[in-house]
Amino acid sequence: MNDTGSLGDDVQLLTLDVNGTSCEVITSPRRTLVDVLRHNLRLTGTHVGCEHGICGACTVLVDGLPVRACLMFAAQAEGKQLTTVESLADPGTGELNDLQRAFTEHHGLQCGFCTPGFLMLAQGFLTERPEATKEEIREVVAANLCRCTGYQTIVEAIDACATARRAQRAAGTEETSCN
């Protein structure tokens, strides 16, 4: 029995900035970011789907941009701002943000396993390209796999959210919520 609680290979202390909170993790360097988020930090909203960067279930934001958390070691994420699906809803009330609401209104999820990845993909993308057309959105949605929806309602949800955000900006309001 080697069940001594040893972590096997050399262990390091990492400081990760996750959803605006600084977290310290002691881990071996071979642990991927998604495993550290899920199992060390217990942020289980980010899912593991393929561990080779194709399905996108593990998509999170690193410095605001969507990345595959399975293709990054946690050690590489030190000094970067990490954002996961747990950050989207209002932390006080739990109220869904406009993107999340658009997903539910358009039935953009069924089993919900791929959903956090799509949400973070869309969140990162729309921040960078608020003026994205529906065709551009479709191209970006093609980055992740969903086995339930056939994608159409995911595209429609993101497009509706982007449209509502643009309308709101045009109306000169500060708030970024869509109905």
């Binding site: 289980t44 739990g94 999820l109």
Partner: peptide, 16 residues
């Protein structure tokens, strides 16, 4: 939807 959209679903790999 609310739990699945906020990352609070509980899938088997989330059982710890």
């Amino acid at each position: 939807d609310p739990r699945l959209l906020t990352g609070h679903g509980r899938f088997v790999d989330d059982v710890e």
